[in-house]
Structures are given as C-alpha cells and as structure tokens.
C-alpha cells in the first residue's frame, strides 16, 4: 500500500475522495473504482448513512476498502448510535485495521429514507471526537486507563460558508480542542474564497482538505445552487459548463484545474463526486497530468 493518509498529510499536499457504501451486498463497480484509485488518493472517505439514506455499514465498507489497498477514512455520525454502540464500533474498527475517523453530527432522519427512525444523538460530534481522541491516548470514557487501545487519526468537517462564520470558527476550534487533527470542507468553486477561509481557519492549526465537487451538467449546477450551496457557483464556472460540448468532461477539467490551483496553498483536497464516483479515476488522471497547473 502507498503512504497512509496520515503520513501523506504530514508529508505534503494530499488528495482524498469520498465513496458511498452500496445499498446491496454485491458491488463490483465500487470495487473497480476503489482499486483504480487506491494508489492515487491518500484516503477514501466512506460515508455513514449520508443524508439519512440507508446504506451498508461504513465500518464494514471501510474494511472492504482496506482489503483492496485503500486507506479508508471511516465516517461516523452521532445520529444512529448511543455511546455504548459508538465505543464498541471504535474498538471494532480499530481491530479491523481502520486508522482514520471522520466524526460528524449527521443529518436528521426526516431528511432521509427512514424518516420515522429515532434520532439518537446521545453524544454530539465534539463529545465523540473527545472520546475517540481519549481512546487513542489510552483513556476510556471515564478517564480510566485503557490497555491495548486504538490509535485513530481523528478529523471532522467544517462549513466555510456557514453564517455567521464566527460561530463555525468557534466550533472548529472546539473540535480541535477535542482532538480533531484534520478537516474536510464543503465544496469550493473559486480560489479566492479558499484563501479567505484559510486565513480565517489558520489560528486553529488544523490540517485543511478543501472540498471539490465536479459539476456534471447544467442541471446539477442549478440543483446545487438552489438546494445545497449557500454561495452560488461563480459565473466563470457556469459559463464554461453551459457552453461546453461535453459538460461532464468540462466539469472534471475544472475540478482538476482547481485542485492543481490550490496545491501550493493548502494541506489537501477532498473530492466529493456526487453521483459520479465512476469518473473519479479519470479526474485523478487529469490532476496528475497537471491540468491548469
């Protein structure tokens, strides 16, 4: 296996990507993608019933990815499990060889496909980070000594477009105080905003991986603008997609250029290929070819 996610982040610019676990027990396409990108990304995030949509356990899929040579970044959210279950999973994941944990609150169940599910949130993201960090330092939830303890690289998420940003930055600092070492952000589409955010987040001292989402079509661009993003996608990007003969290819090209454009400014990039995981190998090739650099 190539360098671990943690070592890569220490060494320099690091690329991670996100892959959702399947909603089935047979998933040859996901495995094919994972094998192709194994040497090209330092870590592969495995989402945890993202947006409240039921999928295979993120721990199980992380373990499967380990088996094909990837270093999984196991996402774990607070929505579905109480503290007993979370602690058991932390031990289980570590024993399975999972080394990176990305902790988040988790979207509320009513947003997903099991709207009647009981929302747990027994711990919040800060408390879970603190607990995970404690485990990694040989301390159990009560501060007692834990022998043969896990050693996790703990991280989280941050929303650079949150308003008021001061509140999000306070929370970022709190997460750092709770033991988080790296953060992955919502997608950016212009370098100027990246610079502004990095300046704001600098005092936290945490490693930042800037979110990147390739735009597949004008339809997707409109959807993101209307439903997901708080800051609209810049005109320059919209124009390029709109007038491209192949919108999907243009979207990948824009992302590759963007990643190469931020290389010297930040710790890494985190690719979230919404509905186009299959394009991930191509995008990574384009990044390697130095698009836009």
């Amino acid at each position: 296996m190539a360098k671990s996610f943690r070592d890569s982040l220490e060494a320099g610019f690091t690329i991670t990507a996100e892959i959702p676990p399947p909603k089935s027990v047979s998933f040859p396409k996901s495995i094919e993608v994972a094998k192709k990108v194994a040497g090209k990304v330092a870590g592969l995030n495995v989402t945890d019933n993202q947006r409240g949509m039921m999928r295979m356990s993120s721990m199980a899929f992380s373990h499967i990815l380990l088996g094909v040579g990837c270093d999984p970044v196991w996402q774990i959210c607070c929505r579905d499990r109480n503290r007993l279950a979370l602690q058991s999973d932390l031990l289980g994941a570590s024993a399975l060889g999972i080394k990176n944990v990305c902790v988040m609150t988790g979207d509320y169940p009513t947003l997903g496909d099991n709207p009647g599910a009981k929302a747990v949130y027994d711990l919040d993201a800060v408390q879970l980070m603190k607990l995970t960090d404690g485990f990694s330092n040989g301390k159990d939830i009560r501060g007692g000594v834990m022998k043969n303890h896990p050693d996790f690289f703990v991280g989280g998420v941050v929303n650079p477009f949150y308003e008021p940003i001061e509140l999000e930055l306070l929370k970022l600092q709190k997460k750092v105080n709770a033991g988080a070492k790296f953060f992955q952000t919502q997608p950016f589409f212009d370098i100027e905003s990246v610079d502004t955010f990095l300046e704001q987040a600098k005092p936290s001292g945490a490693k930042m991986l800037i979110g990147v989402t390739p735009i597949k079509s004008m339809k997707m661009l409109k959807f993101l603008n209307e439903n997901v993003l708080t800051k609209p996608i810049p005109d320059g990007v919209s124009k390029r997609i709109e007038f491209a003969s192949d919108q999907m290819m243009e979207g990948l090209k824009i992302s590759a250029e963007f990643i190469n454009g931020i290389r010297d400014r930040v710790d890494g990039a985190h690719i979230m290929p919404i509905n186009q995981v299959a394009s991930l190998p191509l995008l990574l090739d384009m990044v390697e070819e130095g698009n836009g650099a």
Partner: peptide, 13 residues
Amino acid sequence: PKSLLNGPCGGAV
C-alpha cells in the same frame, strides 16, 4: 432537534 450541547451542526441555512 438534535439536542446538541456543544454548538450547532453545520446545517443551518
């Protein structure tokens, strides 16, 4: 709704 005690989730719009 999540009874968070350590600050907001990032989801408010």
